[in-house]
Simulated assay, not measured.
Amino acid sequence: MELSKHLVAALNLITFILSIPILGAGIWLASNHHTDCVRFLQGPVIAIGVFMLLISIAGFVGAYLRITWLLWVYLLVMFLLIVLLFCFTVFSFAVTNKGAGEALSGKGYEDYRLGDYSTWLQKRVRSSENWNHIRSCVVDAHVCDSLKVYKLASDFYRAELSSVQSGCCKPPTACNFLFINATYWGRPLTEDADPDCHRYSYVQSELCFDCDSCKAGIVDKVRHDWRKVATVNIVIFFLLIIVYSAGCHSFHRAQEEGTYTRYGKGII
């Protein structure tokens, strides 16, 4: 009987430990320089981590105090958590499955097009309310300042820019703008059909922050970060299934042995 009690408690301790990587992933997203600007993504990850941590504590307490109803609640909520984690992970991969930078001949960086990414992510950054916050956050982060070290076009073209720098700090390569310095480009005499070519501004606080390429750069960064978190979630999901199955079996055995009673005074 005591073995069942300790086994259920140990399983909940494992669940508690498993919640740490998920919570840590959410905190990592929140502290990541650019994904901090896109708060609609990191919230669900942190919520799942906190939720999992709390129910593991409830299961641990229920096991040691032998409170049947608390363990029933724990098993029910754990089942819902597994379903939620599965749905969230599938959704994460679905919305981050499309999209990638366009490799450029002779360039160390890539160009980004918003239309290459999932419709859901496009809608998030096309929303005026969302984008005003994201744009302001990225501008305040001074993501383009580090590019000012490139004084020569040859050096700049070899630079490995982040997706945010490539999309927001310069006009798209297709515009054929003349390099003057990394954040100041001369317009060609011919007009280009790409709307981003007209959105590019010489004002250093604006540059291409209103361009679709900037939105695409943000989405690409978020896409890579979110897929890392989704990969962690897959591992946690299968471990949770194992822990949950073992927990159900142990709890069933404990009930048959009379280890738990309704109000927490077990048979010793």
Rank of each mutant, 00 (worst) to 15 (best):
V73W: 03
Y74M: 02
Y74G: 02
Y74L: 06
L75R: 01
L75V: 10
L75P: 05
V77K: 09
M78P: 02
F79K: 09
F79H: 06
F79A: 12
F79L: 14
L80R: 01
L80P: 03
L81I: 01
L81A: 05
L81S: 02
L81Q: 02
L81E: 00
I82Y: 03
I82L: 02
I82H: 01
V83H: 04
V83A: 10
V83N: 06
L84Y: 05
L84K: 05
L84S: 10
L85M: 10
L85V: 02
F86N: 01
F86D: 01
F86E: 00
F86Y: 11
F86C: 10
C87T: 15
C87M: 15
C87Y: 13
C87F: 14
F88Y: 12
F88Q: 11
F88H: 10
F88A: 11
T89L: 04
T89C: 04
V90F: 09
V90E: 07
V90T: 11
V90C: 11
F91Q: 14
F91D: 12
F91G: 10
F91P: 07
S92T: 08
S92W: 03
F93D: 07
F93W: 09
F93K: 07
F93S: 03
F93Q: 02
F93V: 06
F93G: 02
A94C: 11
A94H: 13
A94R: 13
A94P: 04
A94F: 12
A94I: 14
A94W: 12
A94E: 14
V95Q: 01
V95G: 01
V95A: 02
T96S: 10
T96R: 03
T96N: 08
T96F: 07
N97M: 15
N97V: 14
N97I: 14
N97F: 15
K98W: 00
K98Y: 05
K98E: 11
G99L: 01
G99W: 00
G99F: 00
G99E: 00
G99R: 00
G99T: 01
G99A: 05
A100T: 13
A100D: 15
A100G: 15
A100Q: 15
G101F: 09
G101D: 08
E102M: 12
A103R: 08
A103V: 13
L104A: 07
L104H: 06
S105D: 10
